[in-house]
Nucleic acid binder design. Structure first.
Length: 275
DNA sequence: ATGGCCAATTTTATTGGA
């Protein structure tokens, strides 16, 4: 299964790029963030024509997340589903191909100490609470723009960014708390070096200088992460005319391989007659 | 090479992003 995530920074502005990217990579699942529009603004006819189902949680003007998939998403949930709806479309989840997939757009936080900063830290706690209602023994992936770089390798200038909302110790702690539930950074299972980023500021020649951060992540529970076979960042998608400021992140999983320690009958193909 | 912000609405300024 190919599972990807991409903050498109407006699906209307990125429509042609999105469609070309889907044609080229054909992921089984693509999580989108910052579609910046309501469900009616989404180019559903075009993505449907490419064979994709859509689970959209839109919002006029801001935020907005979606899951595109080649098989029909089941049990779609918009938001945290815990009665704390705040009018911000930042989380959508669904069962796709036996995996619970979430597309998350963590608040930016604007500036340390601001109301938005408090909202960001609180949102990460709500995400942890949402996870607490599930089990890390299940195949689950939270994909998206976390607006937090996990560690020093993920930031070009860590000392400079430490005071910013994207790499502040408190934000990193918030992300760690989410991961401590039982999520692994799939990209880091396949790449250990620094300098590999997923976001570059539009300003100050950040991209040509590779002055970026890795804030777009695919986090997976152990049963899923252990089946990952590859991960990459499509840096080329940041180039050219009218790019998003984020690059897509691609991961791949071999779901056919039996899971060690799994006692679930009828799954994994261990009893299948086919060779 | 990849290039000195971008995209939305509240629209000819302002807001938020990251």
């Amino acid at each position: 299964m190919k599972l990807a995530t991409w903050n498109v920074n407006s699906v209307r502005a990125r429509k042609e790029r999105l469609l070309r990217w889907l044609e080229k990579h054909r992921p089984d699942v693509l999580c989108l963030q910052e579609i910046k529009g309501s469900e009616e603004d989404f180019p559903r006819a075009e993505t449907t024509a490419l064979g994709y189902y859509t689970a959209i949680f839109g919002q006029k003007g801001w935020n907005g997340v979606a899951i595109l998939s080649l098989t029909e998403p089941q049990a779609v949930e918009r938001g945290f589903g815990d009665g704390t709806d705040d009018g911000q479309a930042r989380l959508v989840s669904a069962d796709v191909g036996g995996v619970r997939v979430a597309s998350a757009y963590v608040p930016n936080g604007q500036s340390v100490g601001s109301d938005k900063w408090s909202f960001k830290l609180a949102w990460l706690k709500r995400l942890r609470a949402w996870l607490d209602r599930r089990s890390p023994a299940e195949p689950l992936a939270v994909c998206g723009d976390f607006n937090v770089a996990p560690d020093e390798r993920d930031v070009k200038h860590p000392a400079l960014w430490e005071r910013s909302v994207l790499f502040h110790p408190e934000a990193r702690q918030g992300l760690q708390h989410v991961m401590d539930w039982g999520l692994q950074d799939v990209f880091r299972r396949h790449h250990q070096e620094g300098g590999l980023y997923s976001w570059w500021d539009y300003r100050m020649l950040a991209f040509p200088k590779n002055d970026g951060l890795r804030i777009d992540l695919v986090l997976a529970t152990a049963p899923l992460a252990e089946r990952s076979t590859a991960a990459s960042i499509d840096r080329d998608e940041r180039k050219g005319v009218q790019p998003s400021d984020h690059a897509p992140v691609l991961t791949e999983f071999d779901l056919g391989r039996p899971l060690s320690g799994s006692g679930a009958p009828g799954t994994g193909g261990s009893h299948a007659a086919s060779t």
